[in-house]
Amino acid sequence: MLKTTVPVGVAFLSGIALMVSFFFRENTFVGSISQDLKIWLTIVGGFTLLLGVVSITRVNWQAVKNRKEGWGYKLLTLVSIFAMAIPAILPASWSPLFGRNPGSIYHWLFTYLDSPMMATMFATLAFYIASAAYRAFRARTAESTILLLTATVVMLWRVPMGEAFLNLFPGNIPEFLNTYVMNGANLAVQRGIIIGAALGAASMSLRIILGIERTYMGKG
């Protein structure tokens, strides 16, 4: 019962309360319940982050303890997590090195280690994209040829050198691309995808509220 009925009941009541409150003003009883639920949701969200930290610590600590392959990296992961988390959690009133303000340990680690590393990881994509485009982006079919041509002209249009090149041709190609490709074909397709995804999300939410969908509890 605790593993199935209670979570389904909580999901049902919370879902219905938030859904019904949409039709009530904020200063009503239902409106205030809805606001309380939203505050609870942020608190629960905070605990899910804590759960993530506990989980990653357990998994990595086991690997370090048993000297599994790559245990050095896992140790580094653990050191990194706690080196950033502990000084950030300690109150800034104790020392300027604590907290998250500029000058704190957390801020220094974020600015000079975390941020450049993440930017570097993302920047390496440019190298892989160039190599992959050279090897795989072929005009194999009519559809891939249309995609290839559209991608090429849009890529040209989105940079000043390319746009200067496109302007050498008659017929204001950049304006055509903005009007008919981005605000025409692209916009229509994106709307279809957004509406489809929204309908899917709404039906999935309804399934969860009504207890039909239980995979989030590990049930089939």
Partner: peptide, 23 residues
Amino acid sequence: GMGVQSLVHLLIIALVILGNISY
């Protein structure tokens, strides 16, 4: 950054064209 992005875009386009010609 527009200078960098311009050259990288042009390079990728040149590579795609080269790859398709050889194909």
